[in-house]
C-alpha cells in the first residue's frame, strides 16, 4: 500500500505545517506524519499526500513559496 502515497520532506517543522496549511487551503487531502526512517535519520515530520496528488501538491507549495527538500 505504501506506494500509493508520496512523502514531502521539509527543512523545518515550521515549513511542514505551512505546507499543510497551503494544501488544506487548496482542498488537497494530506496528513502530517513522522518522517519514515529510510528518508532521514532525524525525528522530524513530513507531509503525506496521495500519489495522484503529487503534482498538484508541488504546484500549490511552489505557489506559496514553500520549497521541499524532496519527495519520496
Amino acid at each position: 500500500m505504501e506506494e500509493q502515497y508520496k512523502i514531502f520532506v521539509f527543512k523545518s517543522t515550521y515549513l511542514t505545517f505551512k505546507a499543510e496549511r497551503a494544501l488544506k487551503g487548496a482542498h488537497v487531502s494530506c496528513k502530517v506524519v513522522t518522517k519514515p526512517r529510510d528518508i532521514s535519520s532525524d525525528c522530524g515530520l513530513a507531509i503525506r499526500v496521495g500519489a495522484s496528488d503529487e503534482q498538484t501538491a508541488s504546484k500549490i507549495m511552489g505557489d506559496s513559496g514553500i520549497t521541499s527538500l524532496g519527495v519520496w
Binding site: T13, Y14, R21, V32
Partner: peptide, 15 residues
C-alpha cells in the same frame, strides 16, 4: 520531538 498524533498536534499549536 516525537511523531505521534498528540506531538503533531502540539507542534501545530505552536505553528
Amino acid at each position: 520531538r516525537s511523531g505521534h498524533r498528540m506531538a503533531i498536534e502540539a507542534n501545530r499549536v505552536i505553528f
